[in-house]
Design a protein around this nucleic acid. Structure first.
Lengths: 239, 239
DNA sequence: CGCCTCTTTGAGCTCAATCAAGGTGTGTGG
DNA sequence: CCACACACCTTGATTGAGCTCAAAGAGGCG
């Protein structure tokens, strides 16, 4: 798949992966045996911050399931900076859509954000087994549907002031969280990445978020962003 | 589905639809009998300019296939203007992704651009028959994949000057064309719709496109946009 | 004939981009 | 262990692309 990544193809580790994966909503309604068949040919990739899982443009031989950590999916613009398309975390599928094509290439580059693990499964397994399992296809389409929905809400915000866009993005990211109570985005998310996601300049993002930080509306560390006063963020979004 | 739309549920018309639909890439590799089963319970909607096929937020009881004409998929922003997400033309599927969900709502509003016809098929047909036909699922994922790709290229252009964005959009739209030779976008596409697609002000689009029009780089009528000097458009995109 | 949507042009203004310059933390290799 | 590179963060000053507002014309439709 990629250059500097540690790949294990170890049956013990893989057994571990199966037990991890059992609880994913993706596989809801499937028996452990079915799941074993669906991921049996996969390999586990253990990566550290900024490691590349696959490179946009290269031949798409595998698709992936995020086991832990997170991946940033991005493309390079003609100016050389990144355009971030999506953040994938635990339970998300990667590059599934292109698997159905004849001789696919990865449309995006996937890069680990902090230490992350992904299960990479060869394309033929997708074509032969995944596509033939209606419940699974429905789950994948559900994931894609929510990803599409997120795209669309961002498009709707395009005319809004930058403050609203950032607020909307933060709220979108917390809503992906598993524990809905906590207003926390548990991603090592830099201001630059936020800027690249929104397609704006870093400085502009910094000016707004550092201000929020100072005013105790949010709290940012290297590991997470905590919304201390979500009401104010919602207010900012709507203004 | 919707208020002011003429709906026919006429078996003769439907037979006609089947013959129309046979040639769609979507159904490649399926027998006429299979196709008949897959769309048998559908109804044909004949619509005129600006008619609504389905309304964003309402219950998604059917999904659609565009038979002729085109549909604009959009959402309303908090300011009241439209954000256009996609243009669907002949052979495209509508609202397929949400069908896999439990109790789905249409995420977008679909509005006819010029006289258009769509085949609307009930959700249960999707869940029971479409999802269980691997080749068909692969085709749908292929369509979605190219739609996603288009999204992503737009995201990549976000930091570019407006001139480049418009150029890129025009080139994207010609590339959907069936006859690749002709540099023509055969959609009744207004400047306002282009602005709503890019999330910018109408006036800005007008200033740029009218200039191109005057300089013979493009030629716009109510029915189509013709790229007279595609090289110049490509140049504009890259600048 | 009046309503509605789209197009056009001009003038002024503003938000965010750009440029510049310095600060911090982490990893890397000599 | 130090020095250097690299990536990110910060702040200020300046500028300009595109927005807003305004006002008017042109076609299409009921």
């Amino acid at each position: 798949m990629s250059n500097g990544s540690n790949s294990y193809n170890n049956s013990v580790a893989l057994e571990g992966a199966i037990s991890e994966v059992l609880s994913f909503p993706l596989f809801k309604g499937l028996s452990p045996d079915q799941i074993r068949n669906l991921i049996g040919t996969g390999t586990i990739h253990i990566q550290k911050h900024r490691d590349i899982l696959f490179h946009g443009g290269s031949q798409a031989t595998h698709f992936g399931i995020v086991l832990s950590g997170a991946y940033k999916l991005s493309r390079v613009t003609h100016l050389g900076d990144d355009a971030v398309i999506h953040f994938s975390s635990r339970g998300d599928v990667l590059a599934a859509l292109v698997m159905a094509q004849e001789n696919p290439a990865y449309p995006l580059t996937a890069r680990a954000m902090g230490p992350s693990r992904a299960l990479m499964i060869p394309r033929h397994t997708y074509v032969e087994s995944w596509l033939a399992t209606p419940g699974l296809v429905a789950s994948i389409q559900g994931l894609l549907s929510s990803r599409m929905g997120r795209f669309q809400s961002q498009r709707v915000m395009q005319r809004a002031p930058l403050t609203s866009k950032i607020a909307a993005l933060l709220l979108q990211l917390v809503s992906k969280n598993e524990d809905q109570e906590q207003m926390v985005i548990s991603l090592p998310l830099t201001r630059k990445e936020i800027a690249d996601t929104l397609g704006v300049a870093v400085e502009s993002v910094i000016r707004i978020m550092s201000d929020w930080d100072k005013n105790g509306i949010i709290n940012t560390t290297d590991q997470e962003i905590r919304l201390l006063q979500p009401e104010r963020i919602i207010q900012e979004m709507e203004s």
